[in-house]
């Protein structure tokens, strides 16, 4: 029965904006349009990212969710032919304003990629390198302490404590991905972006990362792109559904997953495309 209502789900949530248990936004995106050369990748995106919550971007491949994620720390700057209009404000400041420091931005907005990409160096160096580059004044002992703390935070310390001086590429896929999370946390960002972090991982590693993210949201605001709807349902506090570069629907997970307003959303949830 519940499923039936799901299909025709055109239930309108009358007081959607007031029912959010979301305190304050940290990022606010206004009228964002983006292009790769001639192709428009994002159309009129308006969205708020909330503090200390997990926001999940869902949608079919090529819908623009990864593009938006990479706009948030300006990683798209690396792609030739990328162009953008509109504004993204981080704590009230437009990050695309001329003169805004990209390096400073990326210190505040950490990122974990789809493919685990630790540097081909030792486990410890992977954590020390961003620290040394960003916080020049730290002493050696401090550096190591922070590195150890972050490994502890990600639950990796127990598993790798004998292998700190070994190459990070010798860790398992899940361990590598958690190392990447630890590395992103090392520079103490306010926001953590994750681009399908579990797509290459087995279920056990996936659940470890999910548990980690739920723990981390106490201290960080998290944005995650995922193909896995169950994952979004399990961990997200706020869900945004993209289709062909536009936001079709956004809201609390119970709204999106149980009572979607748009036909497109319910079709996607049923796996029709």
């Amino acid at each position: 029965m519940e499923k039936e209502s799901f299909i025709d789900g055109v239930l309108v949530h009358s007081q959607s904006s007031t029912t959010f248990s979301l305190d304050s936004s940290i990022i606010s995106i206004q009228d964002l349009n983006a292009w790769y050369g001639q192709t428009q990748a994002l159309k009129q995106v308006n969205l708020k990212i909330y503090k200390n919550q997990i926001t999940a971007f869902i949608g079919p491949s090529g819908c623009g969710k990864t593009t938006l994620l990479r706009c948030l720390n300006r990683m798209n700057d690396l792609i030739p032919g990328f162009d953008l209009k509109g504004s993204i404000e981080l704590q009230g400041e437009n990050i695309y304003a001329p003169g805004y420091s990209v390096n400073k931005l990326r210190k505040q907005v950490g990122m974990v990629f789809q493919q685990a990409n630790p540097f081909p160096q030792t486990v410890l160096n992977n954590l020390k390198l961003p620290l040394e580059e960003n916080f020049r004044k730290l002493g050696k002992a401090q550096l190591k302490q922070i590195a150890i703390d972050k490994l502890k935070d990600t639950g990796l310390l127990e598993e790798v404590k004998d292998r700190l001086q070994q190459s990070a590429l010798k860790l398992s896929g899940g361990q590598q991905q958690r190392l990447c999370v630890a590395r992103a946390l090392a520079i103490d960002p306010e926001i953590l972006l994750l681009d399908e972090p579990c797509s290459a991982l087995d279920p056990i590693s996936t659940s470890k990362i999910e548990a980690l993210l739920i723990r981390l949201k106490e201290r960080y605001s998290i944005v995650i792109v995922t193909h896995n709807l169950q994952q979004a349902a399990r961990i997200a506090d706020y869900v945004v559904f993209f289709y062909q570069g536009e936001i079709v629907e956004q809201g609390l997970p119970q709204e999106i997953f149980i009572t979607p307003r748009m036909k497109l959303t319910s079709q996607y949830l049923q796996g029709m495309f």
Binding site: N103, L105, M111, N117, F119, P120, L129, E133
Partner: peptide, 27 residues
């Protein structure tokens, strides 16, 4: 050198030259 090493370094707020010097050249 795989492009994702460079991406990882830049996403950590490391400057372009820092990325070249400490990540790309060692790799």
């Amino acid at each position: 050198v795989p492009h994702h090493y460079k991406e990882a370094a830049l996403a950590l707020g490391i400057s372009h030259w820092g990325t070249i010097l400490r990540v790309i050249l060692p790799a």
